[in-house]
Simulated scan of single mutants.
Amino acid sequence: MSGCDPQIRPLPHVSCEANATPGSGITTRQVVKPEYTGPGWSGKRVRRTAEWMPDPAGGLDGLAAALALAVHRSLTGHRELLVARYELALEATRRPELRAFYDTTGAVFRDRLTALAAAFGSADPARHALSLVAWADGLMFSCVAGSYSSRPPGPDEVRTGLRELLGGMLDR
């Protein structure tokens, strides 16, 4: 698909890695094949994807800004990849080999967010990581496939929402 940025990637996207392009006739279902979900494939791509996550030294405002940038880029520059990701998630509920891949790749983000929450003084880093993922996933789904699809939030709105969520979680 066009717009695949190897530096900022919201989540692992097999359609991007398989060079699916608009009009190519390649669908998510066709792209999600065992050769795209093997251990050598997922580890390298997921490690690269997780590297963009922010450094705690930037403070809570820096964390909110970095996460908001990634979410907003997903909404505005990678909408087709978000749709493919949700299709992959649904397909993973029916195919155990995809479930294992999806869970393994997701664990990289969960672990990194858990570590970030701990670094910021979270009383319950695992629960707060889940809240961050749920917030971002809910926002992205609503703006790509839900009732907000015609009006995705701007970067300031995303940053403000994340800052409020982080402030509430971390009592700041």
Rank of each mutant, 00 (worst) to 15 (best):
R9C: 13
S142T: 13
A57S: 06
G58W: 01
P125A: 03
S131A: 12
G106T: 06
P153I: 11
R45A: 15
S2P: 11
V31Y: 04
S149P: 00
L139M: 13
A64W: 00
A20H: 10
P56I: 00
G161H: 04
M53F: 15
G121V: 06
N19M: 08
R95C: 04
V71F: 05
G154D: 14
L170C: 13
Y148M: 08
G121N: 09
R94A: 13
P6R: 08
G138M: 06
G59L: 00
G161T: 04
G58K: 02
S42V: 11
V31T: 14
P56H: 03
S2L: 15
V83I: 15
S74R: 09
P6A: 07
Q30L: 14
A57R: 00
D171A: 15
R85F: 09
E51I: 01
R127T: 08
P153S: 12
L132T: 02
E87L: 05
G62T: 03
L67H: 01
A100R: 10
G58R: 02
S150E: 10
E91P: 00
A118K: 05
Y86P: 00
P56E: 06
T37W: 06
T28S: 09
N19S: 13
P22D: 10
L75R: 01
A123I: 03
S122T: 05
R172K: 09
S147D: 14
A136H: 06
W135H: 08
G167R: 10
V83T: 15
G121D: 07
E157G: 11
Y102E: 07
H13D: 15
L165I: 04
D171E: 14
G23M: 07
T114V: 05
A64T: 01
G106L: 08
R159I: 03
Y148H: 07
T49A: 12
P96Y: 02
A92Y: 04
Y36R: 14
L165H: 01
A20Q: 11
F101M: 15
L139S: 05
Q7S: 09
V83P: 03
V32D: 11
M140D: 10
P54A: 10
R172Y: 08
P22T: 10
L116N: 00
E164T: 12
D156S: 15
F120K: 14
P155Y: 06
L113D: 00
A65F: 02
L98S: 00
G167E: 07
G168C: 11
R151L: 06
D137V: 01
R47C: 01
E51T: 09
L75C: 03
A65G: 08
T104S: 14
G38V: 08
D171G: 13
L113I: 00
R85N: 10
S150Y: 07
F101G: 02
A65R: 13
I8G: 01
L130E: 12
V32A: 14
P39Q: 06
R110F: 14
Q7K: 06
L162S: 00
F101R: 09
I8V: 11
V32H: 09
L63R: 00
F141W: 15
C143V: 05
